[in-house]
Design a protein around this nucleic acid. Sequence first.
DNA 1: AAAAACTAAA
Length: 326
Amino acid sequence: MAIRTSLELSRGIFAENKVKDAVDLFKKLVRQKICEPNEITYATVLNELSKRGHTDKTLSLLRLMEQGSTKPNKKNYSIVVDALCKDRNLDAAIDLLNEMKLKGIPPDIVTYNSVIGGLCKLGHWEKVKTFFSEMVNLNIYPDVRTFNIVIDRLCKEGKVEDGEEVMKHMVGKGVEPDIITYNTIMDGYCLCGQRDIARIVFDSMINKKIEPDIISYNILINGYCKEKKVDEAMQLFCEISHKGSKPNIVTYTTILQGLFEVGRTDDAKNFFDQMLSTGPTPDLYTLLSMVILSTDLLKKLCYSFISWKERENTDIIFYIIIINGL
DNA sequence: AAAAACTAAA
């Protein structure tokens, strides 16, 4: 297991370097006019850069595109707007959105959703309202995703009631909540310690013929574990396979942690064995949390290494060493 | 042929 994990991690590290090299090469080929990629190729590269947090590079690649013969289209701009939003650089994102309008490439629902999401994350609720009005004025109507983004941020800030209000509002506008809306609200209730209401939401979505998915189960299981009601969590766990869903690594990790928190280490061990034989492959986090939770001695040992790691900033190598060592 | 936005454990 440890060796496999190390290998997977190493592959990840090398893949990361490869992407950087690939982008440098890509830019060079474009600049020297050795090749001229189309919009989709550009979009793919922009996405990879955005995913890995190289927001500045997405912007410079977009500018490079503007100078070439393949002009950026709506999706290319939107990817960069989204990257800037994820980077919490809302001023730049909004500038770019306005630039799109000036260039006659009108932003669409996706562009607006990115900006609204970014503004919500920063808690700029007044600006969120402004953008809602702006998009409606342009005949772009908020969809279920737009509302889900807003509801999620409200819930994460502990304002579940406001989230419920937004949900009522969307229904009034003829936009039906989907499974993500319900999951978001459930998680919101769990986050503020109202697991009982989360359970009511869970049951009400079943009544509305929306089948809970594995994420719905994981949210509620996590809520029960936080309350130290591990038996109730276990009962839900058993329901999953009867309802045609399948527990995933999040489900197992959540229950394992719940069992450890209440000191049921034997049950945790059995549950871990059950996962190894019939469940998903544990990820690095599962293994590490098992190790950390296992004994106080190892816990202290790991923590002393973790603070060393933070100084040295070599986290991945560090985890490989710890897991191999153990 | 291939591209963009929303939900769960740490």
